[in-house]
Amino acid sequence: MTARLRDKTALVTGSTSNIGRAIAVAFAAEGAHVVVSGRSAERGAEVVAGIRAAGGRADFVAADLDGSAAASTALADEAARVLGGRIDVLVNNAGIYPGSVTPATDEATFDRVYAVNVKAPYFLTAVVAPRMADQGGGAIINLGSWIARLGVPVGALYSSTKGAMETLTRAWASEFGPSGVRVNAISPGVVRESVPGESGPRPGDSMMIGTPAGSFGAPEAIAHAAVYLAADESAFTHGAVIDVDGGRTGVAVIAA
């Protein structure tokens, strides 16, 4: 532990698995008191138990971020209460991914994806950012995606929500930066957890063939970038979208 986040508090949405969990674990390892949040109390308890076993501080706050302002406000209020009255770092990570093509996407699915991926972080930020400004500053980290800028034939709905989050990152940096609240984003490539005993590729792995990394990334790679954006060393970083994608969007992909 290097304590880069000592004395800071953090709320990480969607942190009961994958990237969110890795960020919560990394924040706690750097000294932050973390609120782990998600819909599953069982998985949340497992993440909290792991953090505490490693000597970190964490609590679970259940939340079903359905896009309503009420749900986002309730999470902000409860997380702040658990964290002693303040949130220094907010990570807008929770999201859902339907893999349907455009003609197969019904209106209910469209509304649900935008509610979770855009409306929920929008209204959560609307509550948390002014409070951060009042307390002297803070950091907000959004999760974008490489497919927000590089089109793929499946996933138009999801990619459009991530494009919205990257645009909001820049808008919020302009809106809240002068009040001491830094807003930045991370754009992951294909990221997944390795499963012991698993054989064969999963859908999406082929997207990384020919990239400099050559394969999918681990959630911890995104967590490292999140620690940087949450820590004081990124004090001069505003409105940035950091690509942590194995070179998928920045380097020409050469097919084998």
Rank of each mutant, 00 (worst) to 15 (best):
G138F: 01
S145D: 13
A148M: 06
E46T: 15
A94D: 07
I147G: 00
H238E: 09
N18E: 11
P178W: 02
A94C: 03
V89P: 09
R21N: 08
T237F: 01
V253I: 15
D77F: 00
G85S: 10
G177S: 04
T102Y: 14
A156Q: 11
V34P: 13
P212F: 05
D64E: 14
T16H: 05
A58E: 14
P178F: 03
A185H: 02
V82G: 01
D77H: 09
G99T: 15
E175M: 06
Y228P: 10
G163L: 07
L229D: 12
T73D: 07
I254E: 05
I51K: 06
A126F: 02
P178S: 03
V113E: 13
G50K: 05
I141L: 03
A26R: 14
A225D: 06
V241H: 12
H33I: 00
T105Y: 09
A185M: 02
T105F: 09
R248V: 08
G138L: 02
A240Q: 13
V116A: 09
A252E: 13
G136L: 06
V25M: 11
A71I: 12
S234Y: 08
D64V: 07
T102D: 05
V190R: 00
A218M: 10
L150T: 15
G136I: 04
A104V: 00
D106C: 06
P153E: 11
V152Y: 07
A115C: 07
N184I: 08
V61F: 01
V195L: 07
A218W: 07
A120G: 06
P178Y: 01
V253D: 00
V101L: 05
L150W: 09
T249N: 12
D205N: 04
Y97N: 13
R182P: 07
G20S: 05
A49W: 03
V47E: 08
V82T: 14
A58L: 08
V181G: 02
E46H: 11
